[in-house]
Amino acid sequence: MAASDQRARTRLLADIAAGETVRIREVELPAETAAWLAAVGLSPGEDVTLLRRAILGGPLHLRLARGGELAVARDLGTRITIEDI
């Protein structure tokens, strides 16, 4: 079962540890939202570092390898899959 294997290996941006740097694999959101996110700096192939999480499931504080830092809702992080660099 290759598909489920792959799913098992797929990690979400919401689940990485603070301090970890990963590469965005896929943004599983409507095209319109994904295009806007890409303009902001979150698109497949981009490297991001999780600096910290806000308490009680609050937003993720990310640093983009391209420059700049973002606060991103945790919900959004569950729609973005990542891969190790």
């Binding site: 939202t33 996110l37 902001v40 979150l42 937003p59 504080h61 700049g68 830092e69 973002l70 606060a71 991103v72 809702a73 919900d75 959004l76």
Partner: peptide
């Protein structure tokens, strides 16, 4: 609601 994305400036 749409989820939050917010710039954190230096």
């Amino acid at each position: 609601s749409l989820p939050l994305v917010l710039e954190m400036p230096a």
